[in-house]
Design a protein around this nucleic acid. Structure first.
Lengths: 236, 236
DNA sequence: GCAAAAGTGTTAACTGTACACCCATGA
DNA sequence: TCATGGGTGTACAGTTAACACTTTTGC
């Protein structure tokens, strides 16, 4: 039994995910990527195990972290590279493994991933540039991506991916990237402001070669209120 | 590792769930109820294990069956009755168990539950009359109930709980029971008909002491089409 | 002054919601 | 003829969606 974490981040351009390159010395073209994860200890819950993996890797705690579901692939030995890795790393390489996947949303500007106990190269990869991963991790990533998309239609969870202060353009761009389509700028702003989940700060961008944007922050109180009633009027 | 199934049914009055009474000879007031489940075999996926439990218990296949998530309670020995049961039934009573829960929607009029290998009393109980269960099964039931409610806001999955032919009043009642609130009759009918997910049949109720209702059936084709676009205009 | 992104209003179409009465049947 | 649940239309309010120009800044 293991947990794997799909950790999403946003660099104001693309949606990214934290991946581990199993053999850091390989050429990147031949590299084999997997999701960070670990076996579950006997004395911890699944949520605790996922939070532990997240903390060991990023140093972050109290982050948006939600269970995605359990995955049971019966063909862990079907890819030669997977088989090799299992023989190297595990006492019982053929043993059946069921993994419980979590997905996390973090502000990727706030920290540098730590290699820590993983002894592997950790990096942010754009989600749309990944087309295969170790074991069933690609399936898990796709499911996590879908979940993120459909969740965003119901709840404005995007702010978990942004710094405390952000501009409406950044939020707008983020929602477009996740939704995978253009969203009308004026309608988007109107909606966020009407729902009162963002509040304007007395601070503007500096040093930008265009009209500086105001910074905003999330109003957690109003957000909670809306969360209770189910965000009936949210969605694009 | 085990799977547990929350099997919902609808008797045109209340939402019910299939439960197992662990000691059939106990007085019902002292009875201890649990969700049907089983350990997972080495050569099957989680989905297969859940489908097997459902089939063994009900004889039904190709039923709406969806994973709810993995649950890991650390305190399986905290209720005395649970402890007793584990000592009787399991070789390693103290062993950590993680369970993957599924929820299923069935037409409860279409079959009689089989006791089969469970050797326990199986029965339908109204969801709103259950306030405790064995292990963490009450938590699982509540989560399943929530999931059903929030899913119904997005997708008209209700028909899985009805016979092939049904009246719009039955569908209306079902959605009210799941949503837990009244839904305007005219608006409800309009919506279902406009979405074209139901089709009127040339058949009416007989022998009822009031104006007989037309039977309808689901149009699976239109339903699929809507499912692809995400049921943007569904919801109460 | 020019390039680049910020910021702002209006209109038309549609969707949601509230509401009350007649109809067909069995007893 | 009465009790029961089936079945229908309309009007108002709110929401969505489409669309283009002015503003502020650094260079």
């Amino acid at each position: 039994m293991s947990v794997d974490c799909v950790i999403f981040g946003f660099d104001f351009e693309k949606l990214k995910v934290l991946v581990i390159q199993d053999e850091p010395n390989e050429a990147p073209s031949k590299a084999r990527f997997s999701l960070p994860g670990d076996l579950i200890y006997d004395d911890e819950t699944l949520d605790q195990a996922a939070a532990r993996v997240l903390k060991e890797l990023t140093g972050l705690e109290n982050i948006f972290l939600e269970q995605l579901g359990a995955f049971s692939s019966l063909d862990r030995l079907s890819k030669p590279a997977d088989k090799e890795w299992l023989i190297m790393m595990r006492e019982q390489p053929e043993m059946r493994v069921i993994t419980v996947a979590y997905f996390a949303l973090v502000n990727l500007n706030a920290f540098n991933p730590m290699v820590a106990k993983f002894a592997k190269a950790v990096s942010w990869k754009p989600v749309d540039e990944i087309d295969s991963m170790a074991f069933d991790h690609f399936d898990i990533l796709q499911k996590a991506h879908q979940q993120l998309q459909s969740k965003l239609k119901i709840q404005p969870i995007g702010f978990n991916l942004l710094p405390e202060k952000f501009t409406l353009s950044q939020l707008h761009k983020l929602d477009e990237v996740i939704a995978g389509k253009e969203l009308d700028k004026r309608n988007f702003r109107r909606k966020m402001i009407k729902l009162k989940i963002v509040e304007k700060l007395d601070e503007k961008q500096k040093g930008v070669p265009h009209k500086p944007s105001s910074f905003y922050h999330f109003n957690v109180e109003n957000y909670q209120k809306l969360a209770e009633t189910g965000f009936d009027n949210f969605g694009f």
